[in-house]
């Protein structure tokens, strides 16, 4: 029982308000949106897809305008991330060498599956909006 309901019932028990008033107040409390912290994860859990929407006007080459609309389940990204954790050590070593040669000194062996999953979980708050004169790109979760 939340605090507001308890206060209303206490007021009713003390005789400060009538039963009708208590009923109205309880109805008003129940119709209020639940802003408790427990409601946030429920709203967060509704995000299921990563969307990429691209619209580009005709570039003059005669191809016409381009539209790309991609919807990827976040579950697929998670599965892909888990699959990436199967990379053999030899491949990771080679990839590290190539990355450092390209000026990106990242050690892929230090990337843990949990970190990658956290990264995918954080994607639901991601929104990328690129608005150019001739093209629009939107990346978001829904």
């Amino acid at each position: 029982m939340n605090e507001q309901r308890r206060q209303i019932l206490e007021m009713l028990a003390d005789g400060k308000i009538t039963a009708d008033e208590a009923e109205r107040l309880l109805g008003a409390v129940e119709s209020e949106p639940d802003e408790s912290p427990a409601a946030a994860p429920r709203a967060k859990a509704r995000v299921k897809y990563l969307r990429v929407v691209v619209h580009a006007e005709d570039d003059g080459a005669g191809g016409g305008p381009s539209d790309i609309n991609v919807r990827v389940p976040l579950q697929l990204l998670r599965a892909g991330v888990r699959l990436a954790s199967l990379l053999p050590p030899v491949a990771i070593t080679k990839a590290n060498e190539e990355l450092s040669r390209a000026g990106v000194p990242i050690d892929l062996a230090e990337l843990k599956p949990q970190q990658l999953e956290d990264l995918v979980d954080a994607l639901d708050e991601l929104t990328v909006d690129v608005d150019d004169a001739t093209s629009k790109i939107r990346v978001f979760c829904e």
């Binding site: 191809g63 016409g64 381009s66 991609v70 919807r71 697929l76 998670r78 599965a79 699959l83």
Partner: peptide, 17 residues
């Protein structure tokens, strides 16, 4: 896991014709 996560995937592309 990858196969089971595939439903819901959609790719749409349009350029000219």
């Amino acid at each position: 896991r990858v196969l089971w996560a595939l439903p819901g995937t959609r790719f749409e592309m349009e350029q000219g014709q």
